[in-house]
Every structure is written in structure tokens, then in C-alpha cells.
Amino acid sequence: MSTPFSILDLAPIVTGSTSAQALRNTRELAQHADRLGYTRYWLAEHHGMPGIASSVPPVLIAELAAATSRLRIGAGGVMLPNHPPLVVAEQFGMLEALHPGRIDLGVGRNAGIDPRVAEALQLSAETQSIGDFTKRLAELRNYFNEDSLAVPAAGNRPPMWLLGSSVRSAKMAALFGLPYAFAHHINDQQTSLALDAYREAFQPSAELEKPYALITVPIICAATDRHARKLAEPGALAFVELQKLGVGQSPRAQLPTMEEVENYPYSSAEREIVNAYFESQVIGSQETVRTKLDDLIRRTQADEIMATGMTSCNKDLLRSYELLAGLYADGACVWTRAPEHADADA
């Protein structure tokens, strides 16, 4: 059994760098992924976060689709409460018309955690409700029909995905008959439950005959386990800083440099957070990464793995994805399970 591999990118901004450099890094990484044979490359939508440059996926998708040749480029995803469905349909219909067969439209409901962003986007409790999201999703799908008023969306329908990190979102994806992208990197404890619920409740649709689910997995691959962990430490410190939002403190704004990591005075509680963070990651040498991924695919039966990783040096991330691609069969980014699992899966 084989499993294709893809990439999710947040375009992180490193301390002392700029959003312009982060976007250039993203373009370089997408071109690298295109050459290596990855299946798709998605951009996340985040607002009001000084450490993330990916705020307008359609603009970035247009740039990356033009800069690559075969890679599927998509949104992972568009947060539907933030946008009128007509506008989203027009944007992605145009992208599909310009790059036929290479655009993905992933949609989600989470508008973000900063109340200032919600106010700036003029969001209300109603616009962030499940009921409103369901109506927006149905409206968006209809705009891609041939008789739609959305131009050029009519007749230019990119594959639509539903994003989520819960059993509830899994069941919604199943009800609409859409492919499902589960945020394993956010809620790894519910991955199997959500995917099982999705498969059990799935209703075939015009877009999809049988369930198809990918999971987003934090992956850093390097020559040795020790080096891979070192490369992942800026992401771990960023995670520690993010926890400060929950206790009313101000976290650092951008992805830490290696120097900041080395000089950071971790408390014992923060060390525990870091250790828990690494437990949920796939970090290590090629051998270690293969072992962890093979086990994860076996346990979840995910149809596709979408790798996501953050390092303070883009060259290290390029190398990480290159080493990851080196594990694939026949030079293509399709995972072939290790021989020891072959009999169990037969």
C-alpha cells in the first residue's frame, strides 16, 4: 500500500527577518517540492500574527502556481467565516481557470484566536457558528455550478476539502462527501477517532465516491536524530511562547533563531512542555522518521501525509524535505510501507 506525501507551509518569519524574506523562502521551498515530486503544497491563512506571513492564500497560490510546473497548490485553508463565499468562489475559480488541474480549495471554520482580528474582520458570534459555516459551505459549492453568477468560477471547480481538528468536523466532511484534512499537528490525540468517524459517516457525492483523508504531521528530518532535534528547537520554543497567551502574557512575535533558543532560560514547567511537544513530532534521521511514519500510517490508515515543519534556516528545511523525499519509492513522493508491515496490511 502506498501513501502520497505533500507539504503545508505557514511562511514563518524568523526573528530579525521580514515577511518579504519569508515569502521568498516559501517560493523557494515550493519549487524545491515541485522538483522532488511532492503531491501538493498548501498555504495556511493566519491574520494578526507577526511571525506568520501567510495571510492571503489566493495571492500566494497564484505566485507559487506560476513558479512551479506540476505541484498542486492550494489553501490549507481559507477560513470561510472571514470571507463572502462569492468572493472565495471567484478567486479560486480564476486560479483553476489559470492553472487547470493544479488548484486545491481547503476550507475551515477557525477564524483565529485574537479578538482584535475578529473585530477587524467584522466577525460576530453568528458568523462563527456551526450553522452559519454550514450555510456558507453549501453556498460556496453552488457557485462552481455551470449556471452560477460567480465568474469565472462557473465551470472551473477546483477540488474542495474540509479542514478540521475534531470528530465534529470529520462528520461534517463526511456529510458533504468531501475529502478531509485533519490537523494531526494540532490534535494528535483524536486523529484516529476523527478519521474513523469520517469513514463511518461518509456519504458519496459528485466530487468524491469514497472517503479520502490526509493528516498534517510535523516532520523534521536530518542526518542524525540529534541534529534533527536541534533544528526543531526553534519551533518548540515558539510553541512554549504560544502557551503564554493562555495566561495573559505576551509571547515573542516571531520564530526564534538558534541563538535565541540556546540563550533561553527554560523553567522546569517549560521543559515539560518542550518534551511533550517533541513526543508529538516526527523528528529524527531518515531511519527514525521512516519508523515513526510507518507506524503512524499503519495506526491511522491515512490516505495521504502532509508534512509541516519550521526551522530558523530555510536551507535546513529544504534539506529536511529532500531527505524525506529520499525515503520514497522510485524517486516519487509516494510512501511505500516497510516490509515488516506488509503481511499485516495484506
Rank of each mutant, 00 (worst) to 15 (best):
H47S: 06
R40Y: 15
E63W: 13
H47P: 02
L60F: 03
R40G: 01
A67M: 02
A53F: 00
Y38N: 10
A66E: 10
I52N: 00
A44Q: 05
T39Q: 14
A30F: 02
P58D: 05
P57F: 01
E28D: 14
G51M: 01
A65Q: 09
L64E: 14
Q31P: 09
P50Y: 04
T26Q: 07
A44S: 08
E45S: 00
S54C: 12
Y38M: 07
E45G: 06
R35P: 06
D34L: 08
V56M: 15
A66N: 04
R27Q: 15
I61D: 10
L43P: 10
A30G: 03
E28H: 11
D34H: 11
E28F: 10
V59D: 13
I61F: 12
L36R: 10
S69N: 05
L64V: 15
A33G: 04
A30L: 02
A44W: 13
L29R: 01
S69P: 07
G51Y: 02
T39K: 12
G51E: 00
A33K: 02
P58E: 03
L43M: 13
G48S: 01
T26D: 00
A33D: 08
I61A: 07
Y41V: 06
R70C: 12
A30C: 00
A66R: 02
P58R: 06
A33I: 07
A53E: 02
Y38V: 07
G48T: 02
L36A: 12
E28K: 12
H46S: 03
A53P: 07
H32G: 11
D34G: 13
A66I: 08
D34V: 12
E45F: 08
A67D: 10
A66W: 04
G37V: 08
A66F: 09
A65K: 10
T68V: 10
P57N: 06
A62T: 12
E28I: 11
P57G: 08
I52R: 04
H46W: 05
A67C: 03
M49T: 15
E28M: 13
A62I: 14
S55A: 09
H47L: 07
G48I: 05
L29I: 10
L71F: 01
P50L: 01
E45R: 04
A66T: 09
H32E: 09
I52E: 04
T39F: 15
A44T: 13
Y41M: 02
